[in-house]
Design a protein around this nucleic acid. Sequence first.
DNA 1: CATAAGACTCG
DNA 2: ATCGCAT
DNA 3: ATGCGATAGAGTCTTATG
Length: 562
Amino acid sequence: MVKPFKDLCFLCEELSKLSKRTSMANLVSNFIKDLDIEELEIASRMIIGEIFPPWSQLEFDISGATIWKIMKELTGITDEEFIDFFNETGDLGSCVKEIFEFKGKVQTKLYQFKPLSITDVNEHLKELASIIGEGSRKRKEKLLKALLERASPIEAKYIVKFIIGERRHGFGEGLMIESISKAFNVPSEIIRRANMFLCDVGKLAALTKKYGSQYLRTINVTLFHPVKPMLADDAENVLDALKTLGGRAAFEIKPDGARVQIHKKGEKVKIFSRRLTDVTNSLPDIVEMVNRKVKLKEFIIEGEVIVIDENRKPLPYQYVMRRFTRVKDTDKMMEHYPAKLYVFDILYADGRSLINKSYENRRRFLENKIEESIVMPRIVTSDPNKAEIFFKYSINSGHEGLVAKRLTSTYTPGIRGKHWLKIKENPKTLDLVIVAAEYGYGYRFKWLSDYHLAARDEETGEYLVVGKTFTGLTDKEIIDLTSKLERLAIAKRGRTIIVQPKIVLEIAFSEIQKSPNYRSGYALRFARIKRIRSDKTPEEADTIQKIIRLYEDQFKRKGKIL
DNA sequence: CATAAGACTCG
DNA sequence: ATCGCAT
DNA sequence: ATGCGATAGAGTCTTATG
């Protein structure tokens, strides 16, 4: 039976009203129970807002601004009206719905009455995402306009939400697994396990309904089908990590680079990023390296890629990103920013899955088959002092810290368990001044939840922005700060207000970067709020001169390119 | 042809 | 990535 | 204590626009 798309929209509406996880899972479980296989696959993806699996290479490439433009053409709404609608609703999807409802009264022939089915919408979205090449922007807009013209207000709301990736109904992958479990009476642990290899909730639901738990158990790693990477939890220090891991553990270097999963069979090599996108084309030197240094015909290995200078010192993370995002002229990039690979795990070798082997087993296998120069350095110890010395060594070599690993642990894809533990230095902090604030999105749209942080210039007395942050405060603190900031407002620009520089925050960060975007020339990476410094005046805040000093200090450990 | 805006990557 | 909140 | 979803940054490349 063909299910109307409208029903799925109503389901999402219900979900956003609920807060109890179990009742949300029950609702979805009932909805998906009697869908046919094809619709089940599509609907499961839609409900959690992941329309395409991560490696499918299908992308919408459409932003909120484009939606705005299309809405103007479709309804004749003015910019001022649009902003009013947006400010009232707080999210673009609801805003589109309201506009359609309002304008629908004026222009009744705005949408046709042949109802959209779930499959219809999916076909349209797929087509939309596959448009590439010259003039693609125009063709995409035309197609989307046609689709929205057919949609009722509530349908338009969710089409827009899917396209711009705005979910915010509190129902994600984890709850979908619970729902599939309930709907088809299969233990959630089995579904969870299968999901690690499939990385696609749609396929997961379809296979569960079609074949049941016996089949799900047989799913395993497959070449050229990326697996969700196993994740590490945080540990305070090496002692803490040793305690959690049972007194003895492996400690590997943690470089400040990007994670890769490399698959090879015959001549074919593919490199996947942590989010499972195919980055092979950007990293030809890594492809060449594995061809030379891995002595296996078929394999899946995992490692970290960094970029080094002529002294083989790690360059700042910015350069790693340059390599990852570049697809043209990769030859020149290879010369200027040579990449280095550190392999730390092996999941598959010559026809055999290794993920159920222990860490020590996998590591020994890896050391036998891979040239030492690209193997991640590590030690195994039960002595906290030795671990601490290795940690210091890692930091002083320009790396981020260590990852401690339980020797007996198997590879658990997609899970952030207590088997791998990240150990980093305590973050540095700065006291910075709020000079502007933005109203947030979703449930924070009435609160000033994003703060522009500035350092004082000793020479001019001016406050220079060095970053923004939105995280670290509780909801209550955000509400309090909102009213304080509103009283300090000087000017308003859209959803941003400029405020008098009065409030000082203690900000933790991971690194200082050279910024092309800020007038100050510097930006903080991963800025987050530690606490509100009500005891400090803006004059006592840290200065841009101090930030420049800290920036230069970073090169005592890291490599630098002139 | 230069600049600006948009999209997409990552940790 | 980091965080707070729910459980 | 743990899992989950929400929040959204900075940098860089690509496309659109005047």
